[in-house]
Design a protein around this nucleic acid. Structure first.
Length: 220
DNA sequence: ACATTGATCCGCT
DNA sequence: GCGGATCAATGTC
């Protein structure tokens, strides 16, 4: 009997409880964590190096105009209102998927967008999913790239990232050097500057550094 | 710097 | 119901 499938072990329960906190506090320990997805092709594992926090609806204690939940619950963003540790995957720009790990207590919508990572397992499968990749370090150096190498689509939205075919392993301790700054590409004007909730591992080559450079580049 | 591409959501009828 | 703006981006120019 596979009791493990029916009753999550204490480790998973503890991990889910940890993820139920404020994503801005969860972020430093999620950096360095390894997310795995097992499919028929095999398993791909990504070590997370860059995330962005998104918080609750407009009428919550933390209004966040950049969050998909700012205007309330919809069928698409429903997973963000669910238990922590589940995936929220959405489709954007007509061609890309982006994946979040849901945070916060059940009923309070918040999540961490997985912006970049390092492929640490299943490199061959990852590369086959990203033919345009030029180097191992750009395989998952972007939110849609990361979702692509893990084979995530909206069909995975709402699924539990802590149970098979997924898995999440936290690092032994917080990443040595965590940097933070404005979020990338958040719609509306004020959003990104007022909410510096992007977190990344400093000097990690898989972080989408070009975004930081772009943000700091003055207009001609 | 620009084309690509379709689901989603708001605000109307 | 329907129309139109929006979009947590990438790849190629």
């Amino acid at each position: 009997m596979t009791a493990a499938g029916e009753h999550p072990g204490p480790e998973v329960a503890a991990l889910r409880e940890f993820l139920s906190g404020d994503p801005r506090n969860v972020a430093p320990l999620l950096l360095g964590a390894v997310l795995t997805h097992q499919t028929d092709e095999g398993a791909v594992s990504v070590r997370l190096t860059e995330v962005e926090a998104y918080l609750g609806p407009r009428d919550s204690a933390h209004p966040d105009p950049g969050s998909h939940t700012f205007r309330g619950r919809t069928p698409r963003n429903a997973p963000m209102f669910g238990p922590a540790g589940h995936l929220y995957v959405y489709f954007t720009y007509g061609m890309h998927y982006c994946a979040n790990i849901v945070c916060g207590p059940d009923g309070v919508p918040s999540a961490l967008l997985l912006r970049a990572g390092e492929v640490v397992g299943g490199q061959a499968i990852a590369a086959s999913r990203r033919p345009a990749s030029r180097s191992p370090q750009d395989l998952a150096s972007g939110p849609a790239r990361l979702a692509t190498v893990l084979g995530l689509t909206t069909a995975d939205s709402g699924r539990d990232a802590l149970s098979p075919p997924f898995g999440l392993a936290l690092p032994d301790g917080p990443a040595a050097a965590v940097a933070s700054g404005p979020r990338v590409g958040v719609a509306g004007d004020g959003g990104s500057r007022r909410y510096p909730w992007r977190f990344w591992i400093q000097d990690d080559p898989t972080v989408s550094q070009y975004k930081a450079a772009k943000a700091g580049t003055p207009k001609p």
